[in-house]
């Protein structure tokens, strides 16, 4: 790892000031579960790290009725263990409990994961399917507009994900097919049903990161059952292809995992 400067702000304005001081050479450090390994491999060499773990404005989970607001600095473990989230939106808590391993979940944060937008990250699939809003220290962005492409989001330099907000749906579930070695999603699917409207977010499989599977959304909106997906074919064009699985394999996996997610949602 190359040497770097270290700042520990205790407020959002102070964090933004540190970022501005370093131009685009500084980097926010949330849980560090991606950034630290990337720096160790010298794939990233920020001039300065701005540690967000001590910013109170990023903490807290607020559940009022079906409305859920989660601070960007909350860890995956906080989300997975939140009784409030479990009671109104168990599928979302389930998802958080499937990220990494217990030690990783104690450090990694919602905001960090969302801002990084790894193509195999779990939250983006859920945020797309839930129609979530991503709040930053500057504005609010709809999930559909936030996730732009591979590791690319709508965030501007210096912008911090402060909260994610969504309404709990009538039913939802996340199903994940994990790479047996890395445990990252080879394919993860989050399905959410509100009345007769069903949304499907897919992660891990697409070469541009998480996406909506529109055909499945239509089919499941008219019949929320695993077999509604049977007649559909996921095109291979935008599927990832690597040593872990070809694009044809991943395209089929999307369908299989979607069916499992629907089955799980029906059971919740």
């Amino acid at each position: 790892m190359y040497e770097t400067k270290y700042h520990r702000p205790v407020s959002l304005p102070q964090a933004a000031k540190f970022a501005a001081d370093h131009g685009d050479e500084g980097k926010y450090l949330a849980g560090g579960m991606t950034l630290i390994p990337t720096m160790k491999q010298r794939l990233a060499a920020p001039e300065a790290l701005i540690d967000l773990r001590h910013v109170p404005g990023l903490k807290g989970i607020k559940v009022e009725g079906k409305s859920i607001v989660i601070g960007g600095g909350m860890t995956h473990s906080d989300v997975a263990m939140s009784d409030e989230i479990k009671s109104v939106c168990p599928g979302f808590a389930d998802l958080a409990g499937l990220i990494g391993d217990p030690a990783v979940r104690h450090m990694g944060t919602v905001g960090g994961s969302v801002a990084n937008f790894d193509p195999a990250a779990d939250y983006p699939a859920a945020l797309l399917a839930l129609g979530a809003t991503i709040r930053t220290n500057q504005r609010e962005i709809a999930a559909d507009d936030f996730f732009v492409g591979l590791f690319e989001t709508a965030l501007e330099d210096g912008e911090i994900v402060t909260k994610i907000a969504f309404e709990a749906p009538d039913a939802c579930a996340y199903e994940k097919f994990r790479n047996p070695a890395s445990r990252y999603a080879m394919c993860g699917v989050f399905v959410a049903r509100r009345g007769g409207d069903v949304k499907v977010g897919v992660t891990g499989a697409g070469s541009e990161g998480a996406f909506h599977w529109s055909e499945a959304e239509q089919a499941l909106s008219s019949n929320f059952a695993p077999e509604a997906v049977d007649g559909l074919t996921m095109p291979q064009d935008n599927m990832m292809s690597d040593i872990h699985g070809s694009s044809a394999y991943r395209a089929n996996l999307v369908k299989v995992v979607t069916k499992r997610a629907v089955k799980k949602a029906l059971g919740h």
């Binding site: 560090g32 630290i36 030690a103 450090m107």
Partner: peptide, 18 residues
Amino acid sequence: VVHLDGKAVKSCTMLAVQ
């Protein structure tokens, strides 16, 4: 793995300054 403020974390993936 060590405990940081009572929770298990991976000490190879965290800086001492953190």
